[in-house]
Design a protein around this nucleic acid. Structure first.
Lengths: 214, 214, 214, 214
DNA sequence: CATGAATGAGAGTTCATTCAT
DNA sequence: TATGAATGAACTCTCATTCAT
């Protein structure tokens, strides 16, 4: 029984590694060619895997794509949690810290952030199971709630103007996603130095000043 | 001679109407199904036209799509110009006016704004003539420059903090595009009342407070 | 009645001119783009005519194409007739004269000779009326018969070896068509000086020596 | 290792057979319907294969077509080489042998000879990779050079009149291609016994007499 | 578990041809 | 007579997905 169990665990591990290997390959290819231009074949070649094998690990292309985004959302959720739980920082300092956190998020996976927005703009992904959709939505909601709690604290402490915390969280998200998208789009026209960090810093700076209680 | 001229004008008019008819149909279908899921056939059915006829008015699917976006950018450019030239308003009041202007932009064409961002995230549109691409980019740049000039004035008058005006324009744009995208994405999950106006108002409000000179 | 007749004649004349105008345009376009790559639209633009109008003068694209070839065959037939009737030349001299005549044929319409062979290789032309087909075949047969008669004379006079005259005519035709096709194909690979005249001269020279009675 | 190797070989073999199967089917269909009238679908039905599968073996329709012609050229090249190397024959006898060789060429693949000429007259084949085009041209050039060397020998031995060997090779080619094309075209009008052998024999006979040194 | 080969279904696009005027 | 606009019918080619092994 112990043996069976161990074997089971080993199998699980191997499966997870394969999944990760595919996800990583997919991430790279999506980055280079964009979502719709990427074929399953492309991903398979990058992952050194047969198309048929890919379908052992993911239900379909959309499912693979969604899994990619789940990865990011999980990472993001943790980071936000971490920031929220940080005891040593005042609410304002947490906003300040958001600058780096968000940029870190982008650095963690510049490609997938784009993908996430693609998911939002959601063109397609008709073959996504409701289960996966729910997962995605719940994680996203959780992220926002966590951010919201940071603002809630700030408001309670009288440091921030009194607006609905979730609305403020929305705006942070809007700034982040808008900035990533916009900078990427500018780079497509004219690839050059990466202004994202600066833009993000400035935007959040202004946001921080804007929500400071009078 | 007068007759020939009149006929000419009538023909031109008819052509423009056909183009508009197609653009309108396309707008609706792209909205419902997203860009890549939309087939030329779909658009033609909506426009009550044969596929071949569509190709008399647009070079290809990408071109049609880009034309849709040009429409919006032109409208936007005019609106921004108008606001900039408005003599009776102080710089701060112009920012205030932006709230309505941006929402108006969205109302003018809620679907196409989405499309515009799809264009940004873009993924595809490989069949776009460089001419069209240039048109798009130049119009977008013009919009930003105009916005930038509003901030320039405000800074010169000592009403706004001294940051690069174009960077500020970028942030306005980021807020707008991020908000539209985000609200749309929320609506996809849970269609209900439209919070865009509120979100946009709040975001710009905060932005306005944030750039006020100390 | 005289008036009606005159009007009739004028109408006829005008129609013929229009036909010629279209045929000339078609000739040029087919030359530049090849048969299958040429669209009816192309021809119409070259002829400064609407597509619909073209169909008033020709039943369809194939018919237009066949008419082009009829033109050549008629010209060719006359030339062959002329050579045959030439009293002052011995049979051998007529073969010698064929060199120039054939090259002249090519010069008269370098493009259409190609077209003629395309017609032979006949890929398509499924929409050709039997009437037109018959016309084409009869004219071609007539050309060969005329050529044949030249050989017949030569054989009767004991100047040529005794082979079936039509077979000899076939071979002349084969040499001519083969040469035009081959030189054209060489020019496609490597466009440069035109060797057709030389090749044709040499080939017919050898042919002439080859049929000389021992 | 031996096993892997054997499997590799078997796979290779199977792939080659599939290619051949498609080429054969294509040959038949092109023969019946001509190049442009033949659809990929037609070929696939003949080959009992899905259209998508065809594209696993050939880049596109033009490529398939060109491959068909390469087959013939390769066969032809070998035959010419063989004749050239033949030690026991005098130059004149080699010309005599050409009769059979050329007819054999036609028998090897009566359809594809036509195709080859279509390729020459070519009209189209715009989607052909430069690589394939080069292959075709080089093989064709090689064939001619080989033929040329036969004439060169004959001239050196004083058996043939002194003309440029390649020009003579051209003429042989012209006779062959012209004859095939012409006979085919006659058969289209009036399908009956096959006169190609006779015509070819006579033409080359005359050619042989024509180049004999005085 | 893994694969190479195969495919169904459809996409975008083209073009000879014909109305309505 | 002449036309500009429209179209039906195909065509080539692609791709996510699944067998047979």
């Amino acid at each position: 029984m112990g043996i069976a169990e161990r074997k089971e665990r080993e199998k699980d591990l191997q499966q997870k590694m394969r999944r990760k290997q595919i996800l990583d390959a997919a991430k790279r290819v999506f980055h280079n060619k964009g979502f719709s231009a990427t074929t399953v074949e492309d991903i398979c070649q990058e992952a050194e895997l047969s198309p048929a094998a890919l379908y052992l690990y993911f239900k379909n292309k959309d499912d693979l794509y969604a899994s990619l985004n789940l990865q990011l959302l999980e990472y993001m959720s943790e980071k936000f949690e971490g920031l929220y739980r940080e005891k040593g920082l005042k609410a304002e300092e947490k906003i300040e810290a958001l600058k780096d956190l968000l940029y870190d998020l982008f650095s963690f996976d510049p490609l997938i952030v784009i993908n996430l927005f693609h998911l939002q703009a959601s063109d397609g992904l008709t073959n996504l199971s409701t289960e996966r959709t729910t997962q995605l939505n719940e994680l996203a909601a959780k992220c926002l709630r966590t951010l919201g709690k940071i603002f809630e604290d700030g408001i309670a402490e009288g440091r921030f103007i009194d607006r609905h915390p979730i609305a403020l969280a929305d705006i942070i998200w809007i700034i982040f996603s808008g900035a990533v998208l916009w900078e990427k789009s500018k780079q497509m026209i004219n690839p050059r130095k990466d202004y994202l960090k600066q833009t993000l810093d400035l935007a959040i700076d202004i946001f921080g000043r804007g929500i400071k209680a009078a």
